[in-house]
Design a binder for these strands. Structure first.
Length: 242
DNA sequence: GCGACAG
DNA sequence: ATCTTGTCGC
């Protein structure tokens, strides 16, 4: 992120970098969200849905909320959104009703956006439902259009020579599905970025790089860490919130 | 039909 | 997602 005026000349740029110099009347990006769902050890249905909001680019947590939920649908690759999205929407609706001033301008999701068989993964699904831009973050590659672990290992990872390096994920059809990012110097395994909703891949990449203090972008990482902490601090009885 | 498969 | 020991490093 160089914060130059040039990057803001891109019509797809959603936010300015300096409130007084973006030159487009766009508000600067100041609040980014992260969502995740952590599961209880033995019970495959009991889980904790979490939403955190961090200041950008400082990456300090300014809001957190958790909700014990009971998953009804099973996990089926390609259908993750149907299993988890409603719980995430509920958390955002609550924030919008109680503290709208803290609503994130962008949400990092622990799941893919358009990097999906039908081009509409959890990140895209959530973005549309809450009408907020989203970026999909995958920790493992989701096989689609010829892009698989073998392809990533032989054609993508070798290109990631340094921290911050990215390589677009292009399928055999020629379609651009997302990008692999080496988020830190020691991260041999990249994270996979894909457009969720109302953002371009190039901007998603720039913002994600700025949000990485560790391999996993801080918003998603904090949502994960804190939801697990919540489960440790709140023993469950019958499996649902109590 | 068989195998692979985000979280 | 979760199951799990040790280990390298700040």
């Amino acid at each position: 992120m160089d914060g130059s005026l040039l990057e803001c000349l891109n019509p797809l740029c959603l936010w300015g970098t300096e409130s007084a110099t973006d030159g487009l009347g766009l508000p600067p990006l100041r609040l980014v969200g992260g969502v995740d769902i952590s599961f209880v050890k033995g019970d495959p249905k009991a889980a904790c849905a979490s939403l955190v909001v961090l200041s950008f680019p400082e990456m300090k947590v300014v809001y957190e909320n958790f909700e014990m939920v009971e998953l009804t649908l099973p996990y089926i690759p390609g259908f993750l959104a149907f299993r988890e999205v409603n719980f995430l929407v509920a958390l955002l609706d609550r924030l919008r009703a109680q503290q709208p001033e803290l609503l994130p301008q962008l949400i990092f999701v622990d799941g893919n956006g358009v990097l999906h068989q039908r081009g509409f993964g959890l990140a895209s699904h959530l973005g549309v439902l809450v009408d907020i831009p989203t970026i999909g973050i995958g920790k493992t590659i989701f096989h689609v259009d010829g892009i698989d672990m073998n392809h990533v290992k032989t054609m993508v990872v070798p290109k990631l020579s340094h921290s911050g390096a990215t390589a677009k994920l292009v399928g055999i059809s020629g379609r651009e599905w997302g990008a692999a990012l080496r988020s830190t110097e020691d991260s041999t395994n990249p994270v996979f970025i894909s457009v969720g909703h109302r953002i371009s891949l190039d901007h998603a990449i720039r913002i994600t790089k700025t949000s990485c203090l560790h391999r996993i972008p801080e918003p998603v990482r904090q949502a994960d860490l804190r939801s697990r902490q919540y489960l440790r601090d709140h023993p469950y009885s019958s499996g649902v919130a109590k």
